[in-house]
């Protein structure tokens, strides 16, 4: 084969024959079965937990306002499904907007941190402050400044999501393999080109890691903010629902809302995971672990 014939060498590879297609289907089927088997223990644990819950509620004759039966929670979820669904969407949009904004702002802050030690030393303590300040304590303050609205929920979510992203991405941008750094120095590469061609691509796995951590926090941030923001306003998320159902002692509905918010957290984490896997395919080696 002519060594210069790249098109040929490329097209030689991925042309699948029928056997490959069949074995591919078999592999996929195998993978699905493996996934199902993998989830089985978790499902069994959930089943046992439901049985224990039912047993405790019945055996100790606990009042329904204190601990409703699983079936009653299911019933409350069905009755309130429209409200829950709307709140699920509102909180989902707020958490996602907050997470995406935190990813953008956090990445820009990290780039600034990576370019100057002075900036890093001067501002990093304030990023840590974002992590350590109790979010419940500053939300009322933010409401005074920003109002009882969706925007405030997003701001609270951004604050809670920012630290893991800045921390992780800054580390990725600064900690570069010495041989890569030497390679770029050898050819007299400038700061901007090194940032664009080396530091940023090398920090992508760190960005994904930070985003994954923050995806769980995003839902928490949004719900905490909604506790304060939602009452009696046009905006109603899962947090607002929980606050009002708690006030009216609608325990079954409250538990249904708790499960809905957990589901939202899982979905958001799952989405970030899927996006990151797709994005990271080229960063990953065969075993699926990230290269250094």
């Amino acid at each position: 084969m002519n060594p210069y014939d790249i098109e040929k060498s490329v097209s030689d590879g991925p042309e699948p024959n029928r056997d490959d297609a069949a074995s591919g289907l078999k592999d996929r089927l195998g993978a699905t079965v493996a996934t199902a088997v993998g989830w089985a223990p978790a499902v069994i644990v959930a089943g046992i937990a439901l049985l224990v819950w039912q047993f405790v509620a019945v055996a100790f004759e606990l009042p329904r306002a204190l601990l409703p039966r699983p079936a009653e929670v299911w019933q409350a979820a069905l009755e309130n499904r429209i409200v829950l669904l709307k709140a699920f969407a509102s909180t989902g949009i707020a958490a996602t907007s907050g997470l995406l904004t935190a990813i953008c702002i956090g990445s820009l802050i990290s780039v600034a941190f990576s370019q100057s030690r002075a900036i890093r030393v001067a501002f990093f303590p304030y990023v840590i402050f974002l992590q350590t300040v109790p979010i419940v304590a500053i939300t009322p303050l933010l409401i005074i400044w920003s109002g009882y609205q969706f925007r405030t929920v997003v701001i609270v979510t951004v604050i809670i999501c920012l630290f893991p992203i800045v921390n992780s991405v800054t580390a990725g941008l600064i900690t570069i393999d010495r041989q890569w750094a030497d390679l770029f120095s050898l050819y007299g590469t400038g700061r901007v080109k090194t940032l664009l061609r080396l530091r940023i691509p090398a920090a992508i796995p760190n960005l994904v890691l930070g985003a994954k951590t923050s995806s769980g926090l995003a839902v928490i941030g949004a719900i905490v903010a909604e506790f304060f923001v939602g009452n009696g306003t046009a905006y109603e998320g899962l947090g607002s629902l929980m606050a009002s159902w708690q006030a009216f002692l609608k325990t079954a509905a409250l538990i249904a809302a708790v499960f809905t918010s957990t589901l939202l957290g899982l979905i958001l984490f799952g989405l970030v995971d899927v996006v990151s896997r797709t994005l990271l395919r080229r960063w990953m080696n065969v075993s699926g672990t990230l290269p250094k």
């Binding site: 393999d177 041989q179 890569w180 030497d182 390679l183 691509p201 080229r282 080696n285």
Partner: peptide, 10 residues
């Protein structure tokens, strides 16, 4: 030529 190949994985 470095001790490790040091190729950019992406």
């Amino acid at each position: 030529v470095f001790q490790q190949p040091a190729l950019l994985p992406w």
